[in-house]
Design a binder for these strands. Structure first.
Lengths: 201, 201
DNA sequence: TCAAAACGTTAACAAAAGATAAGGAATTGG
DNA sequence: CCAATTCCTTATCTTTTGTTAACGTTTTGA
């Protein structure tokens, strides 16, 4: 993907939170890099500090933990979504999870160092700060809703809701990743799917 | 509780994220109110917009949803923790949960309107913005870890970990609230407790 | 102070989910 | 292009969890 198109996608995403004039964008774009992430390559690996935050401008990634030698998928990021191991990035501690490309992807990256510099930049500081707040709030709300779903809904209800809210991307993801995402086993998800099929049939 | 003591607690909390000089604090404190919240009184009710964000300076509160006529406890806030229905507060939409005082409490409140004014205040704007970002990031990390625990751990593991990390406050909270918090039934938690007792005995 | 309500535990049974294995379809990667 | 792997489903069996109800204790509130 063309670097300029990628950067413009980042600008559009940024501006959905905080508007920028051309001068500000010019300054901000200096801090960004556009990097390809080939399928199966890692954006983050457990044990290493996640040193950047990025926007998926093409493709998709999968977040997963490894427990007892098993991969457990926790989340996904698709086009026009941010990606990072937030805790690792924010606290400068080793990540506890992996982030891996599900397909050939392109990421617009902002390294920790560059973010700090952008925040100290006269012209940008305030807007970077606000962007950071709004993005954090956005994902805070996402997580809040996810926790609520774990507490108030059965696995079957969670899956039904996912079918309603999740886009077509859902159909490109292996079922066992979705099962992990819902907090159940693949076998259990398969049973739920059969039950739902019978009802709607 | 004395108003000044309460306000100083808020200052201390704020400064654990962003330092303030006396002049800035003087400005900020104008936007705050100190309100008692008697046991069983509501800080937020489902269906109403949560119009403020607060810091618990004394006491504790419980977050809960009502589903099929049943109360399901999702979270708690204790002394020196923030409280709000974040989604409702941030998006100005009706809350989907209740927040109720577990004991006679005192809250230092910042209304949505006052927060906006503080953000537009020359002297404070930047620091408010940063405080907002850091608090959002802090709770983002909390939620991230909670979601991870739902996906990677069994209810028994979640409870064991809660025993390790949760403070003495744990022993003041009814078991069935904790069961909800863990995403299981009170009966199931009781069985887990017996199993753990046997092991450690 | 005292009756009512709330709590935690336990038991018995039902329902759901996990574990394991097998089989066929789809995908992958050389 | 084809062998190897991954994937989804299904079946069986085990374990865990949910449901309901009962009982004694503690707490609450009038």
């Amino acid at each position: 993907m063309d670097t300029l198109i990628a950067l413009n996608k980042f600008r559009k995403y940024f501006e959905s939170f905080v508007p920028l004039n051309d001068e500000e964008w010019q300054a901000l774009s200096q801090y960004l890099t556009v990097d390809p992430l080939k399928k199966k390559k890692f954006y983050v690996e457990a044990g290493k500090v996640c040193d950047q935050i990025g926007l998926v401008v093409k493709g998709s990634v999968r977040y997963y933990h490894v427990k007892d030698g098993e991969e457990i998928t926790g989340y996904f990021s698709f086009e026009d979504e941010m990606l990072s191991s937030y805790k690792s990035f924010l606290t400068r501690t080793p990540a506890v999870n992996y982030i891996q490309a599900l397909e050939d992807s392109v990421i617009v990256n902002l390294s920790h160092k560059n973010l700090q510099q952008a925040c100290m930049n006269e012209l940008l500081g305030f807007k970077m700060e606000r962007f950071g707040r709004l993005v954090a709030e956005h994902y805070l709300i996402c997580y809040e809703e996810r926790v609520t779903s774990f507490i108030t809904q059965s696995p079957e209800e969670r899956y039904s809701q996912l079918l309603e809210t999740g886009g077509e991307a859902l159909y490109r993801i292996p079922q066992h990743y979705i099962a992990n995402f819902l907090g159940i086993t693949p076998v259990s998800l398969s049973r739920i799917r059969r039950r739902i099929m019978k009802i709607s049939a």
